Amino acid sequence: MSDRVLTPETLLPRDEPVRLIAPDGTAEADQHYQMPDLEHLRDAYRALVEGRRINDQASALVRQGRLAVYPSSHGQEACQVAASLVLGERDWLFPTYRDSVAVIGRGVSPADAMVLLAGDWHSGYDPTEHRVAPQATPLATQLLHAVGFAQAAKYRGEDTVVLALCGDGATSEGDFHEALNFAAVFGVPVVFFVQNNEFAISVPLSRQSAAPSLAHKAVGYGMPGQRVDGNDVAAVLSVLGDAVDRARAGEGPSLIEAHTYRMQAHTNADDDTRYRERAEVQAWIERDPLARMRAYLTAHDALDTATEDRIAADAERIAADLRAALNADTDLDPEDLFRFVTTDRTPQLDEQWQMLRDEIARGAASDAVSPTGGSR
């Protein structure tokens, strides 16, 4: 652990979220957090464009019946992109169901990232290959998993930092408290990243917490908290990067709250017009993370029309590949229901599989005979 003394003053977040680029694209100086270099920001812009295209394509696939559900992060892409970019090769990401863009940013193919949301496997990718845990649907459970994983890495002496993602709704769960308390007491190298998009489905933040901000909760656990403009990818990169560096240096966990907004409905099953006004949503369009970064890069001669066209074309190819993958029918094997339950199949499971196999065989034989008794 670090010898740095933690006091209420050093633990408390700022009164206003950290911001390095204003909504109109102009830079804002900050005494502590540095502006990432232009090359890094151009890479982030490419990821923003690709993330937006993935979000919109996935939403279209839901309407076409190829995805069972899709919790879009449209408008929150700056948080998604920064979460994937600040981590090192040996670090781990613990995402939620709304973090598909961050998962893809860590190297998981878009098609594999959508398997869960298509109603197929629990996870369409190998977590160990990309160091990305399965996307968690239950609120806050992944935070406990992240802390346990980070503690294990610490015991092994590994240079590993874990970034645990969650939304504002998850901060109302008991698992959130347990994860932060354990992480702070034992100095676990984990960064808790709360994407505060103002709503836990239909419940506004004001009905979830009376704290000045969610980042203020950190002081109660003995870890530093910080607030950041979640639509400013430069600021999120800088603030998250600082917290990751702090964890890697043995200084323990941090709580980062990104102030952003869920531009679309919670999922395709949600009617957001029942609990928020269109004018409220419209106001956030002016804070769009893509437009902000485009304006900044253009003003600094780091983005021209030809580059933008190439980025857009690459994003469209990703969307086309995703469409093709999701429009292909899956070759299902019923025995998979039993194949992966235990390492060695129990007699009970084997009996159940034999019963199902016989039922399938009878059904196939019945289908082969017409209603009049003749073969089809």
Rank of each mutant, 00 (worst) to 15 (best):
A164P: 11
A283V: 08
F338I: 12
V369W: 10
P371K: 02
M114L: 01
L48E: 12
Y296F: 14
H177I: 00
G230M: 07
C166M: 10
L214Y: 00
R246G: 15
A200P: 05
E89Q: 13
L297H: 11
Q76M: 12
L163C: 08
I104W: 00
L41N: 07
R339Y: 05
A113L: 01
E286M: 08
H32A: 15
P334E: 15
D358V: 07
R357G: 01
R156N: 14
T141V: 11
A133N: 09
D242H: 13
G230A: 00
G169H: 11
A247R: 07
F186N: 12
R90E: 15
V341Q: 10
H40W: 01
Y221F: 03
P204A: 11
G174F: 05
D56C: 03
A152I: 05
R339M: 08
Q80S: 06
E129P: 00
T273N: 04
D15H: 09
A324I: 10
V233Q: 13
D159Q: 15
S59P: 01
A153F: 04
Q352T: 05
D329V: 00
F149M: 11
R376F: 01
G107H: 02
R90P: 04
A315I: 13
R98I: 04
I256F: 04
V162H: 10
D99K: 05
Q151N: 13
V185L: 15
T343W: 05
P23Y: 07
D321G: 03
T342G: 02
R278A: 07
R262A: 06
F182W: 09
N181P: 07
G252T: 08
L205Y: 08
V236A: 07
H216W: 11
G169P: 05
F149L: 15
R52M: 09
F340K: 03
P134E: 14
Q195R: 07
R362N: 15
S172A: 12
T7M: 14
A60V: 13
G124H: 02
G363R: 10
S59N: 11
P95C: 07
V281F: 03
E158W: 13
K154N: 09
L38S: 10
A179P: 04
T330V: 11
L38W: 06
L87W: 00
G25W: 02
R227C: 03
H259P: 02
N196S: 04
D245W: 11
R262Y: 04
S213W: 01
T372A: 14
E16A: 14
A184L: 07
G157T: 05
E198P: 00
A22H: 12
P189R: 08
G220V: 01
T7C: 13
V239M: 10
I256Y: 07
V161Y: 09
Y261F: 14
T267F: 00
A283D: 15
D3C: 12
P95K: 02
R262E: 10
V18E: 11
T171A: 04
P347S: 06
A269W: 06
R131W: 05
D159G: 04
W121C: 12
M114D: 05
D112P: 03
R287K: 12
V49S: 05
A265R: 01
L41W: 03
E351H: 12
T137Y: 03
P71N: 09
L144T: 10
